[in-house]
Measured scan of single mutants.
Amino acid sequence: GLEHMADEEKLPPGWEKRMERSSGRVYYFNHITNASQWERPSG
């Protein structure tokens, strides 16, 4: 619901949600550090 939507907005600075086109899996990418990970970043 709306709570989940708001929660997605609160990623740490630099992080954004991305989708891997080949598999459709969602991952997280940090455009500041060029880091990427499957787990939702905390902090």
Score class of each variant (00 low, 15 high):
1 G>D: 14
1 G>R: 11
1 G>F: 13
1 G>H: 13
1 G>I: 12
1 G>M: 12
1 G>V: 12
1 G>Y: 12
2 L>D: 11
2 L>T: 13
2 L>C: 15
2 L>A: 13
2 L>M: 13
2 L>I: 14
3 E>D: 10
3 E>C: 11
3 E>H: 10
3 E>R: 09
4 H>N: 12
4 H>S: 13
4 H>P: 12
4 H>R: 11
5 M>F: 13
5 M>D: 14
5 M>K: 10
5 M>A: 15
5 M>Q: 12
5 M>W: 12
5 M>G: 10
6 A>P: 13
6 A>G: 11
6 A>R: 10
6 A>F: 13
7 D>P: 10
7 D>E: 10
7 D>F: 07
7 D>Y: 06
7 D>V: 10
8 E>A: 10
8 E>H: 09
8 E>V: 10
8 E>R: 09
8 E>D: 13
8 E>M: 06
8 E>G: 09
9 E>L: 08
9 E>A: 08
9 E>R: 07
9 E>P: 09
9 E>N: 08
10 K>P: 15
10 K>T: 14
10 K>F: 10
10 K>Q: 13
10 K>D: 15
10 K>N: 13
10 K>M: 13
10 K>C: 14
11 L>E: 15
11 L>I: 06
11 L>V: 09
11 L>N: 02
11 L>W: 02
11 L>R: 00
11 L>A: 01
11 L>P: 15
12 P>L: 04
12 P>N: 01
12 P>I: 02
12 P>M: 03
12 P>D: 02
12 P>V: 01
12 P>G: 04
12 P>Q: 02
13 P>F: 11
13 P>K: 07
13 P>M: 08
13 P>R: 06
13 P>H: 09
14 G>F: 07
14 G>W: 05
14 G>K: 01
14 G>P: 09
14 G>N: 08
14 G>R: 01
14 G>T: 02
14 G>Y: 07
15 W>I: 00
15 W>K: 00
15 W>T: 00
15 W>F: 02
15 W>Q: 00
15 W>M: 00
15 W>G: 00
15 W>P: 00
16 E>V: 10
16 E>H: 07
16 E>I: 08
16 E>A: 05
17 K>D: 01
17 K>E: 09
17 K>T: 07
17 K>Q: 10
17 K>Y: 04
18 R>W: 03
18 R>Q: 04
18 R>M: 08
18 R>A: 04
18 R>D: 01
18 R>K: 10
19 M>R: 11
19 M>E: 08
19 M>H: 11
20 E>A: 10
20 E>C: 15
20 E>V: 10
20 E>Y: 07
20 E>M: 08
20 E>N: 08
20 E>T: 09
20 E>G: 06
21 R>F: 12
21 R>K: 15
22 S>P: 07
22 S>F: 06
22 S>Q: 11
22 S>R: 11
22 S>L: 10
22 S>I: 13
22 S>D: 11
23 S>W: 02
23 S>K: 04
23 S>V: 03
23 S>T: 15
23 S>F: 03
23 S>Q: 04
23 S>E: 04
23 S>R: 03
24 G>P: 01
24 G>L: 04
24 G>K: 07
24 G>M: 05
24 G>D: 05
24 G>S: 04
24 G>C: 09
24 G>I: 01
25 R>V: 05
25 R>H: 05
25 R>F: 04
25 R>N: 07
26 V>M: 08
26 V>G: 03
26 V>Q: 06
26 V>D: 07
26 V>N: 05
27 Y>A: 01
27 Y>Q: 03
27 Y>L: 03
27 Y>C: 07
27 Y>H: 03
27 Y>D: 03
27 Y>R: 01
27 Y>S: 01
27 Y>I: 05
27 Y>V: 03
28 Y>F: 05
28 Y>R: 00
28 Y>W: 05
28 Y>Q: 00
28 Y>K: 00
28 Y>N: 00
29 F>P: 02
29 F>L: 02
29 F>W: 08
29 F>M: 02
29 F>V: 05
29 F>A: 01
30 N>R: 00
30 N>L: 02
30 N>T: 00
30 N>P: 00
31 H>A: 11
31 H>Y: 15
31 H>K: 12
31 H>V: 15
32 I>S: 06
32 I>L: 11
32 I>T: 07
32 I>W: 06
32 I>F: 10
33 T>A: 03
33 T>I: 05
33 T>R: 04
33 T>W: 04
33 T>G: 01
33 T>L: 05
33 T>H: 04
33 T>N: 05
33 T>E: 04
33 T>K: 03
34 N>E: 06
34 N>F: 07
34 N>A: 08
34 N>V: 03
34 N>T: 06
35 A>S: 11
35 A>Y: 07
35 A>P: 02
35 A>E: 15
35 A>H: 14
35 A>F: 08
35 A>K: 15
36 S>H: 12
36 S>N: 06
36 S>A: 11
36 S>I: 15
37 Q>T: 04
37 Q>E: 03
37 Q>F: 03
37 Q>V: 04
37 Q>G: 02
37 Q>K: 03
37 Q>R: 05
37 Q>D: 02
38 W>M: 07
38 W>S: 07
38 W>N: 07
38 W>L: 08
38 W>H: 06
38 W>R: 06
38 W>Q: 06
38 W>Y: 14
38 W>V: 07
38 W>T: 07
39 E>T: 07
39 E>N: 05
39 E>G: 05
39 E>Q: 08
39 E>V: 05
39 E>Y: 06
39 E>W: 06
40 R>F: 11
40 R>K: 14
40 R>V: 09
40 R>L: 08
40 R>I: 08
41 P>L: 01
41 P>D: 01
41 P>N: 00
41 P>T: 01
41 P>Q: 00
41 P>R: 00
42 S>R: 07
42 S>L: 11
42 S>C: 15
42 S>I: 15
42 S>M: 11
42 S>D: 13
42 S>A: 09
42 S>Y: 10
43 G>V: 13
43 G>A: 12
43 G>L: 14
